[in-house]
Design a protein around this nucleic acid. Structure first.
Lengths: 319, 319
DNA sequence: ATGAAAGCGCTAACAT
DNA sequence: ATGTTAGCGCTTTCAT
């Protein structure tokens, strides 16, 4: 069995309460302090966070619900969350929900049985129904990247509509009048907002916008872009509105022999690692992944400490 | 405060022990069974796994150490592990070690303080020193994808050397005599083994092998491939030996205008999602990600139940 | 500054 | 089949 505080007590001749005091920063005689530290080293003691949680009602773990572990944009966010939370000695329990609300609902229960102190969710849908069992128990929940309809949940998102609008405006301003936007399922908040931004820009500047929907994947982006390029040989620009689809669209572009120059513009989304290698000279809308993760972590921690529900909208960079 | 077993007891007029018996499959009078189930629904009871763990010495969570959450091959494995373990009601605590052994060591301690029942690690180095604090306490550990030097750790890996050898042989047999292999840091077990396999094949078949090392990333693969292609215009084949580098190499190929045909062959590693879109007609070495994850999970579970250390070597597919 | 004792939510004998 | 009791490893009064 693992080394416990009692073993330390026996080893040092002190009592469990004193050892506990030591760990919790109370004042302990220097002499005893040393004895305790020696005993910890000798016995290889590691504190049992859950016995602790049982008393303190803080498990120091938080749950993360991710729609797809295979989606690089989301895993990037998780990395940032991990970074921010690890510093505060919080651990992450990550559940891959496969973009499936029923799995999401299951995962929320699962996390509660692990007594997480809070949940950060990148929602698979706009509906918050799968989160209700947590919200009802006043467990702090932060939704990241997507909106939900619940007023009891904090939200950390980017201004999708504006970012897409600006990116489109930029293409139009550079003389690319006929543009195809490669977008994902309109049931998704982000897809919808981004498409709306494009439409706004096109309407205002009198541009021609072809909307081509595809599956939210590399292949989906590839196929949608291919279709747009074939059906509209006079296309002057392409705008792919998420990470995976951008890669697919870039590949389609290469295959059709399209050059990125004054006659043709390509704007992608988020994929700062691969896209610039694939298509130098292109434009990108970059969501502030680091900030998104950090702010979500901060917001959740604040809620755990009794802070209010907050809705935060960050801006994207266009480069 | 959360609903506890005592609340159920009060609500039903039964005692905590009976409720516990109910949860643990002991026989309970149908009449009471119903009362309990009604109370669970009414109160929204969710069992506290950690109070339970405190008694049973099973937390039903296992730790996963991943070198980089941004590496798609690794996250793919995590998805498979999650899939396999969730069915058994195990939860995952995932730590991103940033390929840094000191972070790895920290993470192992962290996981122990969370009283995980076992650890699956995709080791950042061959050294098992960061895992010792777990191994010493007889906590089951499974190393996935990489070898370690410890005899107390189970290993689930692929036959890297053989797979690379076969892939190289295949290229040689098809008449591509001068081949560049784009590989990662030789300090890594997998890189080393794969390179050795290539060398074996080239030596046996009297081919010419150019070894070009690059950083373990898309850009690293891109740059290494570019260099090889520029320095050896008479190259007849390219073999990229990991996921990220394969993507980079494929891009370099496109940029240099290389066609994949009887005069030039390209073989990549693992990237079944993106590569075929990028380079139709290419060959790929595919590690059995699903099997790797499933077998690692199985092996760990078996060890938790007192099973022996096992070393399992799976084969890759070449397509 | 340290100790004694109770209790967090649950399970496991043991008794009934 | 159900109740009683004790205890998992820790923290937290309350004494000393």
């Amino acid at each position: 069995m693992a080394v416990t505080i009692k073993d330390l007590a026996r080893e040092t001749g002190l009592t469990a309460a004193t050892i506990s005091a030591y760990f919790n920063g109370a004042s302990v005689r220097p002499y005893n302090r040393e004895k305790i530290e020696r005993a910890i080293d000798k016995l290889g003691y590691i504190r049992n966070d859950y016995a602790r949680a049982l008393r303190t009602h803080r498990s120091m773990t938080i749950g993360v619900l991710i729609p797809e572990l295979s989606n690089m944009f989301f895993t990037g966010l998780v990395t940032e969350i991990e970074e921010a939370l690890r510093l505060k000695r919080y651990g992450l329990i990550i559940c891959d929900c496969r973009s499936d609300p029923s799995r999401e609902r299951e995962a929320v229960k699962f996390l509660q049985s692990k007594t997480v102190d809070g949940i950060i969710v990148m929602p698979a849908t706009d509906s918050a129904s799968s989160l209700m069992s947590a919200v009802d128990k006043r467990l702090p929940v932060v939704a990241l990247d997507n909106y939900t309809e619940s007023r009891s949940i904090s939200h950390v998102v980017v201004n999708n509509r504006n970012a897409a609008k600006q990116a489109t405006e930029q293409m139009l301003a550079q003389g690319h009048r006929k543009i195809a936007v490669i977008h994902g399922d309109e049931k998704l908040f982000t897809s919808r907002e981004r498409l709306a931004g494009c439409r706004n820009a096109a309407a205002q500047a009198d541009g021609v916008l072809i909307a081509e929907q595809g599956g939210n994947s590399v292949r989906g982006g590839y196929e949608a872009a291919k279709k747009a390029l074939c059906e509209h040989p006079d296309l002057q620009g392409l705008f792919a509105t998420n990470y995976e689809m951008s890669i697919g669209a870039a590949v389609a572009l290469k295959e059709c022999g399209k050059q990125i120059d004054e006659n043709f513009a390509f704007t992608g989304f988020d994929c700062a690692k691969i896209l610039p290698v694939l298509c130098p000279g292109m434009h990108m809308v970059l969501q502030p992944a680091h900030e998104l993760g950090a702010v979500a972590a901060e917001t959740l921690l604040a809620m755990i400490d009794g802070g209010p529900v907050r809705n935060i909208i960050l801006n994207c960079r266009i480069i």
